[in-house]
Amino acid sequence: MHELTLAESVLEIVGAAARRAGASRVTGVRLAIGALAHVESDTLQYCCEVASRDTIAADARFSIERPPGRAWCAACAAEVGLERWGMPCPQCQGFDLSITDGDQMRVLDIDIA
């Protein structure tokens, strides 16, 4: 359940930023969790809601964007879409893929009041 650890990271980042901005509360948190990221996004969202209790972000709405997976296929010399790890290149069915997008786990922005 490393989602709870990651949710605690979210709230550390959010809390530090909000406090430095002089906010009294956080009303929204927007995350980017790529389709290839090493986390279950529904679980992370739930863990954020649990971990935010008794914090400055207790009333925040957590929303998660899911950037799609992208990879560079060495055989095709092209960037291709990749639904998840372990799947082949949709063009050549090869596996010589290196990720170019979709594995991020990031706090994008927060709404403060």
């Binding site: 901005a21 002089g22 991020q104 922005d109």
Partner: peptide, 26 residues
Amino acid sequence: YRPLDAAHAPGLDAGRTLKIEQDLLA
């Protein structure tokens, strides 16, 4: 926490969006 190192005057804004762009594992 570099992206937010710029100074913000506390309590002046009623509500706004802060850009963070920070990795969870940073």
